[in-house]
């Protein structure tokens, strides 16, 4: 699989700050994979996302060292408008993402398409399709400014999906949602993955990431502390050492390990944990 984004020893500091927000980032993101970005708040997750989209340094200013390659081309050489089509970005604060100039959710979702010059009939079809997918089809006539946090987040999500970018970066999409809606978001991400899109998602809900992601990048204190396949990274003791949240299945395994009766392998999802516990209980039943 091809590499779509590559960080080569990237450090970045926001303007007027003494400390770099991220330091010496090195990683390669492959096309079609789903990446979970985890770590404490203010640890550099959002900056990492901003760098991919070019907001650092194009929008915020500041000092960038090292190279970010998007599809093999240096970030700084990309035209901003091209990048905005290549990479869809859903921000953390849902309310900051509504354009404020569209009076209905329907038009809000269509706005990006208008900017790309898509013809009306195709636009309508696409909005209807996306709205269904993200479950905002009952809100189409509402004013985007009058939505609840959760609804607003989904509309923002829909507005970006409408653009049909190949790479989608999502910063904490579920913090405003209830668990059911949160699972919906991950179902959508799964769908995007099946369409061959590359998804990068910064999120605190590691248990969900463990189920849906291919790889995990853990960022703490401005550095990547671990990266790689989900199972490998999430069970790495370096995460709790750096204040990074770990899945409950892993916590359970650690408890058992401390009690001197470890699992034969470390589970990261609930299903794996259930499997291992069942196995042990049956084993014990057989033994006795």
């Amino acid at each position: 699989m091809g590499v779509c984004i590559e960080f080569q020893d990237v450090s970045y500091a926001y303007p007027l700050t003494k400390k770099a927000a991220v330091r010496h980032l090195n990683c390669r993101l492959e096309t079609g994979k789903c990446y979970g970005v985890i770590g404490p708040n203010a640890g550099g997750k959002t900056t990492f996302c901003n760098l991919m989209r070019g907001l650092c340094p194009n929008f915020y200013g500041g000092i960038l060292k090292g190279t970010v390659l998007i599809h093999g081309k240096n970030l700084l050489e990309w035209e901003d408008e091209e990048l905005s089509v290549q990479i869809g970005y859903v921000f953390q604060d849902p309310f900051a993402q509504v354009s404020g100039i569209k009076e209905t959710v329907f038009e809000e979702i269509g706005m990006g398409l208008e900017n790309l010059g898509v013809e009306a009939e195709e636009m309508i079809a696409r909005i209807v399709e996306i709205a269904k997918m993200v479950h905002v089809d009952t809100l189409l006539q509402k004013n985007p400014l009058a939505l609840s946090g959760g609804q607003c987040q989904r509309v923002a999500f829909a507005s970006i999906l409408a653009l049909d970018s190949d790479i989608i970066v999502i910063d904490e999409p579920t913090s405003q949602l209830d668990p059911e809606a949160g699972s919906d978001v991950f179902e959508i991400i799964d769908m995007l993955k099946k369409q061959g899109k590359t998804v990068i998602i910064a999120e605190h809900k590691v248990d969900l990431l463990a189920e849906y992601c291919d790889e995990i990048i853990a960022i703490a204190g401005g550095s990547i502390v671990a990266k790689g396949p989900v199972k490998e990274v999430l069970s790495d003791p370096v995460l709790p050492e750096n204040g990074v949240r770990i899945p409950q299945a892993v916590s359970l395994a650690r408890e058992l390990w401390q009690a001197g009766k470890p699992f034969r392998e470390i589970p990261v999802t609930m299903q794996e944990a259930i499997g291992l516990i069942k196995e042990r209980r049956e084993g014990r039943a057989d033994g006795n």
């Binding site: 668990p179 299945a249 359970l252 408890e255 609930m270 259930i274 209980r281």
Partner: peptide, 30 residues
Amino acid sequence: VKPPLSAQIAQAVGIRDKILNLKELSAAIL
């Protein structure tokens, strides 16, 4: 609403006690 993950696991593996957190769950498994 879904119960806490530890409760879900406990139920799935057939632990009878009303487990609510990982400590209780690991104690029940041991």
